[in-house]
Nucleic acid binder design. Sequence first.
DNA 1: GGCTGGCACTCGGTAGCATCGAGTGCCAGG
DNA 2: CCTGGCACTCGATGCTACCGAGTGCCAGCC
Lengths: 340, 340
Amino acid sequence: MLDERKAAILRAVVEEYIDTAQPVGSAHVVKSSGVHVSSATVRNDMATLELEGYLSQPHTSAGRIPTEKGYRFFVDNLGAPTALRGSDAVQVRSFFDQAHGEIEQMLQDTSRLLGDLTSYAGVVVGAQPAEATMRSVQVVGLTSTAAVVVAVLSNGAVEKHSIDLTQGGKSLAGGIGDERVGAASAHLAAHLIGAVRSGSMPVPKTGDAATDALCALAVKALGTDAADDPDQVFVGGTSRIASAFDAIETVREVLGILEQQYVVVTLLRDVIDRGLQVAIGTETGMAPLADCALIVSPYQIEGEPAGTIGVLGPARMDYPQALAAVAVVSHRLSQRLSEA
Amino acid sequence: MLDERKAAILRAVVEEYIDTAQPVGSAHVVKSSGVHVSSATVRNDMATLELEGYLSQPHTSAGRIPTEKGYRFFVDNLGAPTALRGSDAVQVRSFFDQAHGEIEQMLQDTSRLLGDLTSYAGVVVGAQPAEATMRSVQVVGLTSTAAVVVAVLSNGAVEKHSIDLTQGGKSLAGGIGDERVGAASAHLAAHLIGAVRSGSMPVPKTGDAATDALCALAVKALGTDAADDPDQVFVGGTSRIASAFDAIETVREVLGILEQQYVVVTLLRDVIDRGLQVAIGTETGMAPLADCALIVSPYQIEGEPAGTIGVLGPARMDYPQALAAVAVVSHRLSQRLSEA
DNA sequence: GGCTGGCACTCGGTAGCATCGAGTGCCAGG
DNA sequence: CCTGGCACTCGATGCTACCGAGTGCCAGCC
């Protein structure tokens, strides 16, 4: 463990570097850290901190820069969470007061809100309605070989899946008439409404091969894990990534990551699963994010874990501010989604 | 109009500049343009071209760069459309052969495909099902003060709108029971199925105030113009924007535009409405896109105009390649969406 | 033992300067 | 009207000198 003074020095270096993106020298630390010792003493301590891996030096005659370990110590020792800036608090409040309508739209807007609050990229992974029960199930025929299943879940989510009837084996080979679609729709409604959505929902046979085949396709479509549903990832404020790094190549790589919804979901889930709230650099597990930090927080609906929000920015991120933003938004979002 | 040789010189400058991003000198033009005159002659012509606004000079002793007008002349005189590169043609073919499932997913993937083909950002604006008829309308209650209307349209689109019953005036003030939701659902289905979706769909009164109020809310929700539905905009390959410009500020601005779905829709629509296929620089009507070019193409479903695809890249874009990509993808997409 | 003032040293950044060369404009002659 | 020739421009490149922020270390002090 670091002694009091070294911790203060480290903290000062991190804060200064976050602010200026310039290597921090011992003189600056003396001015800003509140430790009342000479710069020579600070230098000695900084040398030790470098030896222990908290700081590094871009070149001999420059100041120090925090390492990943340095940032980690910093966030682990932040102490009491900061409050949001007043104007930001107002923005969050008015956002959630005005929020209404489609949940997807709201989550998308929330990702943008996170971006606005932090000047980094905001990410929202939507609720996985795994535990929801079905309120309505309906099959609607479009052509003789295409149909859609639409299900409304108890949490208000609407799921839609296309069905290609040519996939349904020989009993559907010739297409299917409206009456059988109707029969299948009624049959599914009768047996699935009230059931928990899952990968294996038993539906009894009707005796009619074509109707049963259609039901089977519909059930299969409905059972597809919603976590794989790419509509459930929302990223906002990506343009801010361009301001966060000066190496254009880094910008490209980070944007490339954010484009891949599946990767983003996995990333957030991994971090949450490891019990982290903040992942710095290699802690994210993704090489292109070596210069990034990620802050995550789960949110709940009616107390049940529902999804994750996060902020992705440079490792030299304003952690107190970003942590506050993520915490507040996660809290307000949970509230908002639970009250409906 | 430009004489033969000046046109050839201009073409050579544009092509070279697109390739290298370096100002092009008279000597290079002689080598690459096929005009068999001396560099001095080319210089004279280039001076004229500059005077007429097709070229500009970053500074006195440098080569020439195409102006917006120069690019415009270039694309207007491209002649026969180029074919896609072989490998790209294969990629398009296999993409559409494998495409299946949800239309939203497919459009999203299409935007990514466009990005891959051109190395710029791909944009797809989804079908506006304004002309579609309703195949199914359903109201599902969630709580005593919230419900959703779900409509399936003849083109396979599923529309979902949340309804907040507290907005429904005093007849709904106390919430509403399941039986009335059911009544409203049946009533709407009876009168709207088969109707063209529009902003004003008449629904007769039932005589029950609460049911009528709910119906009114549902109809209003359904009538909302689908063009405003932000789910209908898909942008892919944004990370490539980072490679397309060297000024990081430009990257930020362009990404900022692409983030605003409403702006993107408007942008594409404006360009299409002006009858353009290519919009260069200020032709886009957006100041931050001064260094960009946009290629658009509408696509059809069953011969009916359905939406727009496009590619946004730097003004020094590989126009032949990008035009070919947009044309082919638009064609194949139309085909694919019509066959279902 | 730990802190401090002092000092020599390092090395990236900047300014000044000469040089280079790609490119131009122009002109006189074919 | 085209061309070879030529003087000129001006960004890019490379060199040198220098500055200064910052370091490491040491001898001395509390």
